[in-house]
Design a protein around this nucleic acid. Structure first.
Lengths: 293, 293
DNA sequence: GCTCAACCATCACAATATCTGATATTTATT
DNA sequence: AATAAATATCAGATATTGTGATGGTTGAGC
């Protein structure tokens, strides 16, 4: 049965162009590679290289096998990285950074599934502001992020849009705006708008500030307190609003300026390289987050 | 450096619950497994199993490594299958089955990219009717399929929806319906409708037959001939219609009964297991087929 | 058409790695 | 306490892989 070294020889030979060059690169002697490839061909019962030309060229079969070998070795390299970082003490755990606004029931489902599927892997969930998430992933502090999409693309991280999160405008039932029907843009401007904003200070481009006066919080629950005490109105995720409205102190505003709910895009942020299988699983799960809502 | 056998021991030990059972299963002696796991732990510089209990249990590190090992071995098994089928003569090629209605420019781009990326792998493109595609993939005759979505789900194949293909109603410029503006449902009923249908005989649920009289063809080009000779009207993919309309003999009908174009969902069909890397690449490419149209 | 450098295949032998079977020890169960 | 089933360890057997030497082939440059 062939080994990883054999596959490495195949890949390296293609990469360097010759058995000798491959041998030099992997620190062995030419005949070792020659025999290695030969035994690989015997094991697979296939001719991988055409040796009639000066430099060995891949046969169609070889071409096909090469792709498998590449994928396998990439995984092995990732495992290598993972074990290396584990021995130097970095505990293996998965850290998921999500925007504070996401407290979806589906996320709780994900926690449950995670604990069943990977009972021994630690899960850390950081609840932070969207703009901070990119840095957390970039620095390696977090393995995956779930954020409102930035407008500019970031070349250091992998991004994957997964849908939109509808926001609606709400205010307290005793707020002047709650009485009004068919609210125009100019109607809300005089009233204080309550906005979500990251601790880092700046807000997201997707969150439109419409009123001239604004109050901020980095915590959506604090926003609730501010709302019911009549401090102003706010745009909040529709699924949060539902819960609040059912409590009877908050009402949906009948705004005319967006007839379909305003829905900023949501994306998954992951590092460019070396994603472990557990993180990969989390990413796959996150992808279906908005599938049937 | 550890080998595939070592990883296999790890996985099999977890699966069976003990080193001995693992040894029995993989046809070796207990001490071989014991030593194998030990050397794996030395190579990785990690403790994978906790031996204080009766049966060895995975440490958190082991749990983590296990996932990698599983993925790697799955790939190796796939490679095994691929090489086996290649030696018994099944030429390694990728066979893509697409519905006859798809002749998208983006598909031609895919052919070009394929020939660059995998110059030695054969590509076969079968142009067939959507309902036949499921069987082609199921039987292994085709590796991937691109079809209009069936309404019932099929448990034997993997399905992945990728978007919708807009259809519009057209007829010849000299057809009575071309003269009319604001065509109602009852206007089209008396005229012959030209429909796409698979050779297997049955049509897709997504293709609404509205007229009482219908003519069928399994070939969209034949439909064109029928259309320009004034035989009737038809629903055809919008991108096909564009080309035909620009030739001047076909016109878009001003139908009122669907104000947004009728767009059946399109999905990728792939086998449940053992997808080779080239096929995987094709699937990834197909997924973005409708992304920016 | 000759030379030369770089390449590949093959072989016998050396070096490693892996497997075996025996043995001692541990652990949960009766 | 006795038992059954597991694990660790060790020395020797076996198999795999690597080495270095040798000879043959290829293609570029003259």
């Amino acid at each position: 049965m062939y080994s990883l070294d054999h596959l490495r020889m195949l890949v390296e030979t293609v990469e360097t162009g010759s058995f000798s060059a491959c041998a030099r690169k992997i620190g062995k002697v030419q005949s070792a590679v020659s025999q290695g490839i030969a035994s690989l061909e015997i094991d697979m019962n296939l001719e991988l290289f055409d040796r009639t030309t000066r430099k060995p060229t891949l046969t169609p079969e070889g071409e096909y096998v090469l792709e498998f070998a590449r994928t396998i070795l990439r995984q092995v390299d990732d495992l290598q990285l993972a074990t290396a970082s584990m021995t130097i003490g970095e505990e293996m755990r998965v850290c998921l950074a999500v925007d504070r606004a996401f407290e979806l029931p589906r996320l709780q489902q994900l926690y449950r599934d995670f604990s069943n599927k990977y009972p021994n892997t630690e899960l850390e969930v950081l609840s932070v502001a969207s703009p901070d998430i990119y840095d957390l992933v970039k620095s390696g502090r977090a393995n995956v992020g779930l954020t409102f999409a930035k407008l500019d693309i970031d070349k250091d991280v992998e991004l994957c849009g997964i849908g939109n999160m509808p926001f609606i405008a709400v205010c307290a039932t005793d707020h002047p705006l709650a009485q009004k029907q068919k609210i125009f843009m100019h109607d809300v401007i005089p009233y204080r708008q309550l906005l979500l904003r990251g601790a880092s200070g700046f807000e997201l481009g997707h969150f439109p500030k419409m009123s001239t006066l604004a109050w901020y919080s980095n915590d959506i629950h604090r926003l609730y307190s501010m709302l019911i005490s009549g401090c102003g109105w706010a745009y909040i995720p529709a699924y949060v609003a539902e819960g609040w409205i059912s409590k009877g102190k908050i009402e949906r505003m009948d705004v005319l300026f967006d007839h379909k709910p305003w829905s900023p895009p949501v994306e998954i942020v992951s590092p460019k390289a070396s994603i472990g299988p557990v993180t990969a699983w989390v990413i796959e799960e996150l992808k279906s987050l908005f599938d049937n809502d």
